[in-house]
């Protein structure tokens, strides 16, 4: 697929896809009866869904529908929030990641995350990428680390722009470059899954297009879950789409089906702009 000419049209995207059915057969993550509570308030009601490997799943829905909360269950980031409680099973390689004996620190090295606002560390570009490999001991010596940094930056499509100033502070890059730096940083720890929480909401359309291209390239290697407010974005980058409303999973299906022929009335209302 040609990704050098800006955004790939939706049709093109769907044409090149492998059939979705085989992805459902071997899900990377399988969530069963997920409930999330903030104190007494229930934010997610009994959601069961699976995420195929080597495909992009988009979570869409109006603000406050619980899609970010659900995303954060997948790498147990909700653990860092005071009085947040998660119930249900999330199976990765047959293991429930909500089990008490699963170390969230190790889990997060397998499930990378990219946030809404670019959040590079106030360190150099190099150190931003090298941070993860260093704490997990992924590199044997300086040369190995250099190689990881270069590979990650290349995959994030940032290498050519920063290769001459790897020691410059990461906070000095533009917003779009910072977000690609954050993606590179997540890639550097060799995750199996990448979670993206509205990765383009703070970016201009051109930077957004670059990130979307990048997501499309990364799809070949990772299981990607993206939360987005932009239905066009969901249509452009994802193969599967899940529509959330008021903490419930309303509809889950192939992206083309959700956007052209939704089964649920609420889904249709939302994607045609009648609410949300």
């Amino acid at each position: 697929m040609d990704t050098s000419q800006g955004m790939s049209p939706v049709v093109d995207n769907n044409l090149t896809l492998p059939p979705i059915a085989d992805a459902a057969a071997a899900p990377r993550i399988d969530c069963r009866n997920i409930k999330v509570f903030y104190g007494e308030t229930q934010a997610i009601h009994d959601v069961s869904m699976s995420f195929p490997d080597r495909a992009v799943t988009a979570l869409i829905g109006p603000s406050g529908c619980g899609k970010s909360t659900f995303l954060r269950c997948l790498n147990r980031m909700n653990d860092t929030i005071e009085n947040c409680r998660v119930e249900g099973q999330i199976l990765m390689d047959g293991e429930n990641i909500n089990d008490a004996d699963v170390d969230p620190v190790l889990l997060r090295s397998r499930v990378g995350m990219v946030f809404q606002k670019p959040n590079p560390f106030p360190k150099s570009i190099y150190d931003n990428i090298a941070y993860g490999p260093r704490i997990h001991g992924l590199a044997n010596g300086r040369e190995d680390l250099d190689a990881i940094v270069e590979k990650s930056l290349r995959r994030a499509g940032l290498w050519d722009e920063v290769k001459d100033r790897l020691m410059a502070p990461g906070t000095g890059l533009s917003g779009g470059q910072q977000q690609r730096l954050c993606i590179a940083r997540a890639i550097a720890v060799q995750p199996e899954v990448i979670l993206m929480d509205e990765p383009c909401s703070a970016l201009d359309p051109i930077a957004t297009a670059r990130i979307e291209e990048l997501i499309d390239e990364l799809r070949n290697r990772y299981c990607i879950v993206i939360v987005t407010h932009s239905m066009q974005q969901a249509a452009r980058v994802s193969q599967r789409t899940a529509f959330f409303h008021l903490g419930n999973l309303v509809e889950l299906g192939d992206t083309s089906q959700i956007f052209t022929n939704p089964r649920e009335k609420r889904t249709e209302d939302y994607i045609t702009g009648r609410f949300g």
Partner: peptide
Amino acid sequence: PQTLRDAAYALGATKSETVKQVVVPA
């Protein structure tokens, strides 16, 4: 900013690694 802590946690840093290598330097 909390987002810096989140970034470190999401990379699989422990709490003390986050404090030592991200929060205090910042």
